[in-house]
Simulated scan of single mutants.
Amino acid sequence: MELNVVNREINVGNIRVIGIASSSLFLIGDAETIQQAATFDTPAESLIIGPFTPFVPD
């Protein structure tokens, strides 16, 4: 297999984004490094980490 890459100038005139997903990346051109980050809108005390869900009987 032979792969030849020629980097040349790119010109983007107009972009229309209709919608995005919860995990999205929109990239035009090259990227040497892409870093991931995450934030929570939820207060820390309401975040449950673990395999169990609290059960409250009636």
Rank of each mutant, 00 (worst) to 15 (best):
1 M>R: 08
3 L>W: 08
3 L>P: 04
3 L>Q: 08
4 N>E: 13
5 V>F: 12
7 N>I: 02
7 N>M: 05
10 I>N: 03
11 N>W: 05
11 N>A: 10
14 N>W: 11
14 N>D: 11
15 I>W: 01
16 R>V: 09
16 R>D: 06
17 V>K: 02
17 V>S: 06
17 V>A: 07
18 I>A: 14
18 I>E: 12
19 G>W: 13
21 A>E: 14
21 A>P: 01
23 S>Q: 06
24 S>L: 00
24 S>W: 00
26 F>Y: 04
26 F>Q: 00
27 L>A: 05
27 L>K: 03
28 I>P: 02
30 D>V: 05
30 D>Q: 10
31 A>N: 01
32 E>N: 04
32 E>Y: 01
33 T>M: 11
35 Q>G: 04
35 Q>C: 04
36 Q>A: 15
36 Q>D: 11
36 Q>S: 15
37 A>S: 14
38 A>R: 07
39 T>P: 03
40 F>T: 15
40 F>G: 11
40 F>I: 14
41 D>E: 15
42 T>I: 15
42 T>G: 05
43 P>L: 09
45 E>L: 03
45 E>T: 03
46 S>F: 15
46 S>L: 15
47 L>W: 01
48 I>D: 12
48 I>P: 00
49 I>C: 06
49 I>H: 08
49 I>K: 09
49 I>D: 09
50 G>T: 07
50 G>A: 09
50 G>L: 12
50 G>K: 11
53 T>Y: 08
54 P>G: 01
54 P>N: 04
54 P>M: 06
55 F>L: 10
56 V>P: 00
57 P>F: 03
57 P>D: 03
58 D>Y: 04
